[in-house]
């Protein structure tokens, strides 16, 4: 058995790590990496200023000068997509960072303390659950005005219950394992057990949740931008671009909406695939234990 297990010792680490991973996941992962890279390098690789208006050449089709054509104001769609990736990815990233932090904290406290504390946090989560994220965002915009921040803050709050509820159940199972009891008997302080032991063991689940949440946040933010409640034109943002391109569709030039919607779609699908894969790997590992 050991001889068989010791197969392929010479393959490079990276290849070995991803041996047996389905090609679909490899493609999805690569696409995601490229999108992030494009967002980071937008100023270097974008052929035009995303907001440079050229009224002489609206609605151009794909050409060597404009790979994806131009919009109603003659702006280069590719450049707008590349710059748009920055804000379209930054929004969900912020939402996830905030909601994950709050959710993990609530989950750990609820799972650790149990009893009344758990009951209060659980009820709080249920109350928050009753507010649909989009409605909360619309209300936030009505109160604080449209822009980048209001929807991000609203969604950060709206996503907390989803994260907290799932992680609480996982944390609760972990907390009741005997190794935690052993640490308690040793006299390890509770915060240390939570941070040094529970958190690392919850990390796979947190990663999965973050991936799925990111995709949701991206769709929700795009929808808010599309409704005109989030980012405002002429900001280059995928949601804004879909909305702006709407009027052009009637004129027979669907490219702006199409490409922007396509970018959202591709990102979300790739994210779902990759986070699903992480979840599966986690399951396999869990079965080993």
């Amino acid at each position: 058995m050991s001889a068989e297990l010791a197969l392929s010792p010479r393959r490079p680490l990276l290849l070995r790590r991803f041996a047996g991973v389905s090609p679909v996941i490899v493609v999805a992962g690569t696409v995601l990496a490229l999108i992030v890279l494009a967002a980071l390098l937008a100023p270097l690789i974008a052929p035009y200023d995303p907001n440079a208006v050229d009224l002489m050449s609206p609605y151009e089709g794909s050409s060597p000068a404009h790979w994806l054509g131009t919009d109603a104001s003659g702006r280069d769609i590719l450049s707008r997509l590349l710059y748009g990736a920055r804000i379209s990815l930054a929004g969900p990233a912020l939402v996830i960072a905030c909601s994950m932090t709050a959710g993990v904290l609530l989950a750990l406290v609820a799972a650790w303390c149990g009893g009344k504390v758990d009951a209060v946090i659980s009820r709080l989560i249920e109350v928050l659950f009753a507010f649909p994220g989009l409605i909360l965002a619309v209300v936030a915009v009505a109160v604080f005005g449209a822009g980048f921040w209001a929807p991000v803050v609203a969604l950060s709050i709206a996503y907390v219950p989803m994260v907290a509820r799932i992680l609480r159940s996982v944390a609760l199972r972990e907390r009741n394992l005997p190794y935690v009891a052993a640490l308690q008997i040793q006299g390890v302080p509770a915060p240390r057990i939570a941070v040094r032991h529970l958190l690392p063991n919850l990390m796979p689940m947190i990663t999965v949740q973050a991936g799925i949440g990111f995709a949701y946040a991206m769709l929700d933010l795009a929808a808010i931008s599309y409704l005109g409640l989030g980012l405002q034109p002429p900001t280059a943002d995928w949601g804004v671009m879909v909305a702006e391109g709407q009027s052009s569709i009637i004129e027979g030039y669907p490219q702006e909406s199409l490409y922007a919607a396509g970018a959202v779609l591709v990102t979300v699908v790739c994210l779902n695939l990759v986070s699903g894969w992480v979840a599966e790997r986690y399951d396999v590992r869990g079965a080993e234990l």
Binding site: L177, G187, P189, H197, N201, L289
Partner: peptide, 27 residues
């Protein structure tokens, strides 16, 4: 308190039944 637990821990310790879940799997 964890200080009291430490004090007691130096007197009484415990080993559990399931060898699989009584260790942190990442440690």
């Amino acid at each position: 308190s964890s200080a009291e637990r430490r004090r007691r821990g130096r007197l009484v310790q415990m080993v559990f039944q399931d060898p699989y879940s009584s260790l942190d799997r990442r440690q």
